[in-house]
Simulated assay, not measured.
Amino acid sequence: MSWFILFIAGILEAGWLVGIQKSESFTNIPYVVFAIFSMALSLVLFSIALKDIPVAHAYLVWLAVGASSISIINHYFFEQPLSTQQLLCFCLIFIGVVGLKVSN
């Protein structure tokens, strides 16, 4: 269950990055609120996951899921290009994440 919680925390990390991006320098208040909510919930879930997952593994997974999520969100919702090489690298990141889970 901790790995699932960590995965959700990583997705929420991408959520607060989108919120900050769309807040237009913190002038668009609904996006500011969304960013703060996503950031807080991401950190809470991350800390819950740390009860069962070593901090080094959890941090790497949290960052990997967040970075991958933000790229995918930007591609599908904000029309930013995503190359085949980038997709391949994301696959390598997720292979590493699976490797960490298996080794834990």
Rank of each mutant, 00 (worst) to 15 (best):
S2L: 11
S2Y: 10
W3K: 03
W3V: 04
F4P: 02
I5A: 09
I5P: 00
I5R: 03
L6I: 01
F7Y: 09
F7T: 09
I8W: 08
I8E: 08
A9D: 02
G10S: 06
I11R: 02
E13W: 01
E13N: 13
E13K: 09
G15D: 03
W16E: 08
W16Q: 07
L17Q: 11
K22Q: 10
K22D: 02
S23V: 01
S23H: 01
S23I: 00
E24R: 10
F26N: 10
F26K: 05
F26Y: 12
T27G: 01
T27V: 02
N28Q: 13
P30A: 08
Y31P: 00
V33C: 08
V33H: 01
V33F: 08
V33M: 06
F34Y: 05
F34W: 03
F34T: 01
F34R: 00
F34C: 06
I36F: 10
I36P: 02
M39G: 13
L41K: 06
S42G: 07
L43I: 15
L43Q: 14
V44P: 15
L45F: 12
S47Y: 14
S47L: 10
I48C: 12
I48F: 15
A49G: 12
A49W: 11
A49S: 15
L50R: 11
L50N: 10
L50Q: 10
L50W: 13
K51W: 03
K51C: 01
D52R: 07
I53T: 12
I53G: 12
I53L: 10
A56L: 07
A56Y: 04
H57Q: 14
H57C: 06
A58I: 12
A58L: 09
Y59F: 12
L60D: 11
W62D: 06
W62Y: 01
W62S: 06
W62R: 00
A64T: 15
V65M: 03
G66W: 02
G66I: 00
S69L: 01
I70H: 03
I70Y: 09
I70R: 05
S71D: 09
S71P: 08
I72L: 15
I72K: 02
I73H: 04
N74K: 06
N74F: 08
N74A: 08
H75I: 02
H75G: 04
H75D: 04
H75F: 14
Y76S: 12
Y76A: 09
F77N: 03
F77W: 14
F77S: 05
F77H: 04
F78G: 08
F78C: 04
F78T: 05
E79L: 14
E79W: 10
E79I: 14
E79Y: 13
E79C: 13
Q80K: 15
Q80A: 06
P81G: 07
P81Q: 11
L82R: 09
L82T: 06
T84H: 09
Q86M: 11
L87I: 13
L88Q: 07
C89F: 14
C89H: 10
F90T: 02
F90Q: 04
F90H: 08
F90I: 13
F90G: 00
F90M: 15
L92W: 03
L92D: 01
I93M: 15
I95L: 14
G96K: 00
V97A: 05
G99T: 06
G99R: 01
L100A: 05
L100K: 04
L100G: 13
L100Q: 10
K101S: 01
V102K: 11
N104R: 06
